[in-house]
Amino acid sequence: MTTDGGGGSASGGAAGGRGAQLKHTGLRPGWTTGACATAATKAAYTALLTGGFPDPVTIELPKGQTPSFALAKERLTAGPDRSAMAAVVKDAGDDPDVTHGALIRATVRLLPPDSGVVFRAGPGVGTVTRPGLPLEVGEPAINPVPRQLMRAHVAEVAARYGGTGDVEITVSVDHGEEIARSTWNPRLGILGGLSILGTTGIVVPYSCSAWIDSIRRGVDVARAAGRTHVAACTGSTSEKTVLATYALPEDALLDMGDFAGAVLKYLRRHPVDRLTICGGFAKLSKLAAGHLDLHSARSQVNKDFLATLATEAGAPPSLAAQITTANTGLEALRLCESQGIPLGNTVAARARTEAQAVLREAPVEVDVICIDRAGTVVGRS
C-alpha cells in the first residue's frame, strides 16, 4: 500500500518547526538529508514491528532538538521478506539548497539476530569510489553522523517494541542522481547519486556549511590521491584558466567560490605542496585587502585600497584619484592597464601575501592568478 500524506515538511520541536525563524536573520531553518532519512527509518522500522506508521514521526537530533516529520509516502510489504518503506520530503527552510523538495525514502528489512545495522544505497544515493572521504570505498554515501542517528533510533524503536535492532536500511532519493550533478559528488568520486549528510540535522540558511564541508572533502580526496598541487577557483571561468595553465586532474580542482578562508584554514592543517588560487580580479582584490569571505554581501571592493596599490605600482596621483571614483574594480584595472601600471600583478602579489599569512607555517607554496570576465589573465604572482 502506498499513501500520499501531507506536505512532508518537518514541524514542531525545539528548533521551532515550520514558520520558525532564526534569531537575528528572520530566516527559517530546514532539515538535512540525514535528519529526513532518520525520520523515515524510524517510521519504517516502527511499522515493521507494530504494523502502523507513526505520522508525524518525531526524532531527536544531536543537540537535543525534537522535530516532527510528516510522511509523504509509506508502504508495508508482507510475506517472507517483510519490509517497510517510509518517505519524507526534505524541507531546507529558506536555504537555497539543491535538495530542497527531494523525496528521501528509507526501506527497512529485518535481519537475523546479531547482524547489526546494515546500510545500503538505493536509487539516487551515491556510492564512494575514491579514498579520502570519511567512508570506505564501496560504501553507500551515508555519512557517519546520519548513520549514528539512524542506529540510535533503530535501537530506541527496538527497545520500545521488542525488536532485536538487526535491520538493513536502504536509503534512496527520488531523482537523486540527476540532482547530484549540481553538487560536488561526481568530482569527489561519489557516483550514482546524492550523499546523506548532516552533523546537527539542521540546515542553517546561508550558513554555507555544506559548501565549506565540500571544500574540505575535496582537499581530503586530493591528498588521498597523492596530489601535491591543488587549485582553488572562484568559478567555472577561473577553473578553465587553471586547466589551460596547469595539467591538473579533476580531483585537484577545488570549487572555492567565495570561501578563500575555508580553503586556506583547512590546508593549514592538511597541507599540500602547492596551492594555486585563481579568480576574478575584483574578488581577489578583496583577498588582497584581507577579506577571507569574498561574497558581495559580506565584503566589498575597496577603491581606496586599489588606488593605494596602484600608487605603489607607480600610478601618478591623477590616476589614483580616478581609481577611487571608478564604478567597478575591473574599471580600475582597465584605467591602470591603459597607462601601463601593473595593478593586476600588484593585487595578485598582495593576495598571495594574505594567503600565506593565513597558512602560517604550513609548508604550502602559493601562486595567485587574477583573471577578467573573459578568463584572460590580468595578474599573477
Rank of each mutant, 00 (worst) to 15 (best):
D97N: 15
S299N: 14
A222W: 00
G261I: 11
P96T: 14
P316C: 11
A348I: 00
P62F: 04
G132P: 09
T324A: 09
S296R: 13
T228F: 05
V118F: 12
P186Q: 07
K303D: 12
K42Y: 02
N185M: 10
T328L: 01
T3F: 11
K240M: 11
R187C: 05
G93E: 01
V364Y: 02
A351V: 00
H153A: 00
V137H: 05
V125W: 06
F281I: 01
S214Q: 06
L335I: 01
K90T: 04
V157N: 10
E337A: 08
G257A: 10
D258F: 02
G6H: 11
A362W: 02
T77I: 14
A351S: 00
D55N: 15
H291C: 02
I212S: 08
T32H: 02
T311L: 03
G290N: 06
I341E: 02
P144L: 07
R227I: 08
E239T: 15
Q21N: 07
A152K: 15
A357P: 03
I202N: 04
L149M: 13
T311G: 13
L275K: 13
G193M: 04
I196H: 07
T127R: 14
N185D: 07
D166M: 07
V301I: 03
F305H: 14
E60H: 00
L309V: 00
R352M: 06
T170I: 12
S318P: 05
R227Q: 13
T353H: 09
T107G: 09
T129K: 14
V154P: 02
E178Q: 11
A288Q: 04
K240E: 14
A37S: 05
L49S: 03
I142W: 11
S68N: 13
A141D: 03
S236H: 09
S209G: 12
T245L: 11
S299H: 12
S207D: 06
Y246V: 15
D166H: 11
P146N: 13
G16F: 10
A152G: 06
W184D: 09
R360M: 04
L103P: 01
A47S: 09
G226S: 07
A159R: 14
G17A: 02
T200I: 01
D258G: 12
V125S: 14
A297H: 15
V98T: 11
T245C: 10
L264P: 07
L359E: 09
L27T: 12
